[in-house]
Design a protein around this nucleic acid. Structure first.
Length: 957
RNA sequence: GGGCUCGUGGUCUAGCUGGCUAUGACGUCGCCUUCACACGGCGGAGGUCAGGAGUUCGAAUCUCCUCGAGCCCA
């Protein structure tokens, strides 16, 4: 039976590959037939997939890890079975307290239930230094997407780190509720349009949907293990918050920041609302370019129906054809008004006839010219998409009807010169695909004062630094003020009325807020004429008006002056919204408090799909955080977030990195498990001295790691921090140290206590370093390590000054000897634990390793300081360019050539000067070292050179 | 069209103020059932550092140009 159970090695390797492949593809399938058959031989009721097997050919002990599906159905289980005799007996592990396998689902769920929200609350009364984070309030779509998740990982790393460093941390969570997407979703789900129900009813439907979506996103955030301060949650659609939005509006109005003006906006004539640029989608459509005679000048246009709105004709300043037109006025066909000819660089002389008509407004370029040249405004299209009174003869016609009619009339009059097809990108309403019109209306604006914004922006620390340039460029080239009015419903109402009698503006008092002017009348009569009949402003505020006071809100703004916790310490956000959220927040903070909003801003990159493009529904490259959580868990995801890319650069999602993270976690678990199983009373006692070389070497390396990780955390370089931890845990601790001292630990001799102590200290420190990144894992291990101490997240940050230069130097040699001799042994075809005979190590200094090397290699080791009786031959020369270059400059190349030509004895004892190119040159000390090889005559001894040591190996027969 | 960023083995990535044999992961190939871990260990192959020019004793790194990609904005 047992022999059946041990497949031949080659088969197992293939099986291992296939298991990996399946795992990387994400799901487990029922195993290959052969595997199943073997398992069925053991326990027929359990369909299972063998993951790994350990056994002994002639012994009794087999261990089999299988993936099993319980007979009752439900989730698959992963368990370890021990084969005793011919039956499978299910057992968890050899230690009941420390399971052999780390079950991330179970552990993460358990800790998330154990952690209490109160542990993360900001304490306003605390004497600790403050660390207030201006967390971004996401739009409650119901999906907390992977880009958010990355950003929140960064925030959580910082929050957890700063708490351990003794800060009073505020990690609030907001929700930026208002906006069109929710309105549209509500219309879809209720099968209505917003005009079918009252404003208030519509708003309440939106609020209901938003609340549902917030709940969904909260649960994803909890699943990722974020240490959010839920006592500082804010929701912009609630009166508590939007009262502040309205208050800020009034204050900015009174300070002269806010004004009204006529301005063009994108408008969907079917939905009868203005829409933002972000809501315009572009379609490639075929249109017709009409050439016609415009008072003697041939003009090409796709929109002849806008002739009534024509306010100028533009030509390129260098276009010779139109030089005579300069300064002239032209008469508009059909409508008779006269328009100037203007010259502008932006006109493409090669397009159409090189002369274009500027209409208010045919496209964005028209708006630009209109603004730049101070042209008059002629409205030819109304909000329903019909021609207005100025389009005499076409009044009341729809745009497309008017176009057909006017083209017909051009033909009749003989001014139509030609037509051709044109591929054109047309801006359309993202929702109904109606081509958008640019219409002018009365809008509210916030005055943008570039100097004010720049001054504050430059007082803020930008990480990475170059992100400030984006803001600077944007602010200095902004042509228009910020339009803050929207013609929508689900948003903060603009708190203003207009007197029906004298049209004066009526504003509420701050203490009367919040108000909805469409639902209520002002408390006081019109200040100009005393009338009591006012019409409420129907426009609402841009949602950036809500979110750009998030920092004021969380720092405790009550409308009077500077808030108590202002400015915040950190604003984390994406670079896609530097020009909006970051810019507007700075503008508003300066306007309302006169100060910068935060000490620093940490800009995270975008998450790109596996194909390298921004994730989007249309590309189908979206990966939801939940998918990763289910397959690999929160801690693996968080590791991906930390290590996937340098802070601030875009990060391409790839499953490999998540898999690598999860493997590191497994490795860490096994390291921790090993260490925990070694811990006895001596190891736990602070009084146990650490004296052995290897142990002191480990602690020195640990100390360096703590310093490096701390430095990286202070600079928000999470990839560097995690890399340092991985390097230490995997290479230094597991591969080098543990392999070296295992023998000492198993031997139960006198040196055991020191190694145990070193392991205990290291594991404790490692838990603290890991806590910000792998909060569940770190708490799990810490709980096993120090059961009475509570959560690792309540512990202070790792601090471990341990400087032992001798241990670093000699320990490094020892480690190198161990690893190179292990490799040598392997190359000789020996199993690594096979007897290795006796070694004599010749070195300049004796190293007291306490017998570690001998045990690790299973060899008798003798250390000698005298020179070996061997022939030494100089093999090559190694140059130290950092010494050679600065000392010799241009002669460096020639110098190195000359050194290579020296006889061996001079390489060992360099001359003071060298003759190069007709002159003597001083040999810089330390500019090169000879590399030796050794030979021996006559005896059956292998010789290996490792660094400056020579090892003579007398193999066991 | 403008701004910003980026281009490093098959794939992803580190490399900041120029100086060891260009880092690591995944993949790949070979060897190893080792008492924490086969989700492991050891080893190998695989690189014109996008291309070109310049500065320098020395360039993945600094400068300029070209090509390509991404993001944001017109």
């Amino acid at each position: 039976m047992e022999t059946d159970f041990v497949p031949r090695i080659r088969e197992r390797r293939a099986e291992k590959r296939s298991i990996r492949r399946e795992r990387s593809q994400g799901g487990w399938r029922r195993g290959a037939a052969s595997t199943n058959a073997m398992v069925r031989g053991m326990a027929t009721q359990i369909p299972a997939r063998i993951l790994s097997k350990i056994g002994r050919r002639d012994g009794r002990a087999f261990r089999v890890t299988v993936q099993a599906w319980p007979a009752t159905g439900g989730d698959r289980l992963r368990e370890v079975y021990f084969l005793t005799g011919t039956t499978l007996a299910a057992r968890m592990a050899d230690s009941p307290e420390i399971p052999a396998h780390y079950d991330f689902g179970e552990v993460e769920g358990r800790w998330q239930r154990n952690w209490r929200d109160e542990e993360n609350y900001f304490d306003p009364a605390s004497p600790k230094p403050r660390y207030v984070i201006d967390t971004p309030p996401p739009y409650p779509t119901g999906n907390f997407h992977i880009g958010n998740a990355l950003n929140w990982c960064y925030i959580d790393f910082i929050a957890r780190y700063k708490r351990m460093r003794g800060y009073n941390v505020m990690f609030p969570q907001g929700w930026d509720c208002h906006g069109l997407p929710t309105e549209v979703k509500v219309e879809e789900t209720h099968h209505i349009t917003k005009n079918d129900v009252s404003r208030e009813e519509f708003r309440s439907m939106c609020r209901e949907l938003t609340a549902k979506n917030i709940a969904l996103m909260r649960s994803t955030m909890r699943g990722l293990g974020f240490s959010t301060d839920w006592s500082h949650e804010y929701i912009t659609m609630l009166p508590e918050y939007y009262t502040k939005t309205q208050r800020s509006f009034l204050q900015m109005f009174h300070k002269g920041y806010i004004y009204q003006s006529e301005h063009p906006v994108n408008f969907c004539t079917r939905c009868e609302t203005a829409i933002a640029y972000a809501e315009v989608t572009y379609d490639d459509r075929k249109t017709t370019l009409h050439h016609f005679d415009f008072d003697g000048v041939e003009i090409a246009t796709t929109r002849p129906e806008l002739l009534a709105a024509c306010v100028a004709v533009a030509v390129h300043p260098g276009d010779e054809r139109y030089r005579p037109l300069s300064g002239r006025k032209l008469r508009v066909p059909f409508f008779g008004h006269k328009v100037p000819v203007i010259r502008d660089e932006a006109v493409d002389p090669a397009f159409g006839t090189g002369a274009v008509m500027i209409c208010t407004f045919g496209d964005k370029q028209d708006v630009h010219w209109w603004k730049q040249h101070g042209l008059p405004l002629r409205k030819a299209i109304d909000r329903q998409g019909r021609m207005t009174g100025i389009a005499k003869g076409y009044e009341g016609k729809r745009v497309d009807e008017a176009r057909a009619a006017i083209v017909g009339d051009m033909k009749k009059q003989g001014i139509l010169k030609g037509q051709r097809d044109l591929e054109q990108r047309v801006g359309t309403c993202w929702r109904c695909k109606t081509p958008i019109e640019i219409l002018s209306g009365r809008q509210w604006f916030v005055r943008v004062k570039p100097d004010e914004i720049l001054r504050a922006a430059r007082e803020i620390t930008w990480i990475p630094e170059h992100m400030l340039i984006r803001l600077e460029n944007w602010v200095t080239q902004m042509e228009w003020d910020w339009c803050i009015s929207r013609q929508r419903i689900f948003a903060t109402p603009i708190p203003a009325w207009f007197c029906r009698k004298c049209h004066a503006m009526i504003l509420p008092e701050e203490e009367d807020l919040p108000v909805d002017p469409t639902q209520e009348q002002p408390k006081k009569p019109c200040p100009s004429c005393g009338a009591r009949d006012a019409v409420g402003e129907e426009d609402v505020l841009d949602t950036w008006m809500d979110s750009s006071i998030s920092v004021l809100h969380v720092t405790g703004w009550d409308g009077a002056g500077t808030p108590p916790f202002f400015p915040a310490q950190l604003r984390p956000q994406g670079h896609d919204i530097i020009r909006t959220w970051a810019c507007y927040t700075i503008l508003r903070s300066v306007a309302l408090t006169g100060r910068k909003p935060w000490d620093g801003i940490l800009v995270n990159g975008m998450v790109l799909g596996e194909d390298g493009f921004k994730m989007s529904k249309s590309r189908g490259n979206i990966i939801a955080p939940e998918e990763i959580l289910v397959k690999y868990g929160a801690d693996a995801f968080r590791q991906w977030g930390a290590a996937g890319a340098a802070t601030g650069s875009d990060i391409m999602f790839n499953w490999n990195d998540v898999v690598a993270a999860s493997r590191f976690q497994t490795k860490l678990w096994n390291i921790a498990r090993f260490a925990l199983l070694q811990l006895d009373d001596a190891a736990r006692s602070e009084a146990t001295p650490v004296t052995a070389l290897a142990d002191r070497w480990l602690l020195s390396r640990l100390s360096d790691t703590v310093a490096e990780v701390t430095r990286a955390m202070e600079e928000y370089q999470f990839d560097r921090a995690l890399r340092a931890i991985r390097e230490f845990a995997w290479n230094v601790l597991a591969d080098e140290y543990i392999e070296l001292v295992k023998g000492r630990l198993y031997a139960k001799g006198s040196g055991r206590a020191g190694a145990g102590r070193a392991l205990a200290v290291t594991l404790d420190t490692l838990c603290r370093l890991l806590a910000p990144f792998l909060p569940h894992f770190a708490d799990e291990v810490y709980h096993h390590l120090a059961p009475g101490n509570g959560s690792v997240h309540r512990q202070p940050w790792a601090e471990f000054p341990f400087s032992d230069p001798v241990a670093v130097r000699d320990g490094g040699r020892l480690i190198r000897l161990a690893s190179e001799l292990r490799r040598y042994k392997h190359e000789q075809g020996l199993a690594l634990n096979a007897p290795f005979g006796s070694l004599t190590i010749y070195g300049a200094q004796a190293i007291d390793d306490g017998g570690d090397l001998g045990r690790a290699l299973n060899a008798a080791v003798e250390w000698r300081t005298e020179a070996p009786r061997l022939e030494r031959v100089v093999k090559e020369v190694r140059f130290h360019r950092a010494v050679v270059g600065p000392a010799l400059r241009k002669q460096a190349g020639a110098f190195m050539e000359a050194v290579k030509q020296l006889p061996p004895e001079q390489l060992e004892a360099p001359p003071a000067t060298l003759h190069i190119g007709g002159g003597d040159v001083a040999v810089p000390p330390g500019s090169f070292t000879p590399v030796f090889s050794y030979r021996i005559e006559g005896t059956a001894v292998d010789v290996v050179t490792i660094g400056d040591a020579v090892v003579a190996i007398r193999r066991a027969s």
